[in-house]
């Protein structure tokens, strides 16, 4: 399957274009989980604060992904 990924804030350095929010895709085996994707992206697991899949905040790293999922990864961010 193929998922669409966007990396934000300091995670931009792990994106192919090194730009925050530039979408890129990753091929994963069927039944792959969020944890599998994180491993593939080489982002240190403990630095990930928030994951948003298709607009929903997901806390469970074991969540399975499906084809065409839109995944956004964030370190801790805040503002007002």
């Amino acid at each position: 399957m193929r998922v669409e990924i966007r990396l934000y804030a300091t995670f931009a350095q792990y994106a192919p274009s090194q730009r925050a929010g530039d979408p890129f895709s990753a091929q994963l085996h069927d039944g792959a989980t969020l944890a599998d994707l994180v491993g593939k992206l080489r982002i240190p697991e403990e630095s990930i604060h928030l994951v948003i899949i298709n607009g929903r905040i997901v806390h469970d790293r074991c969540q399975s992904l499906v084809d065409d999922d839109r995944v956004g990864l964030f370190p801790p961010v805040g503002g007002g």
């Binding site: 804030a9 925050a20 961010v77 503002g79």
Partner: peptide
Amino acid sequence: ALNSYGTAVLVNIINEA
């Protein structure tokens, strides 16, 4: 986050959500 990107760091996360 705030010192590097300012409060506008929220644009992307609120948009993703």
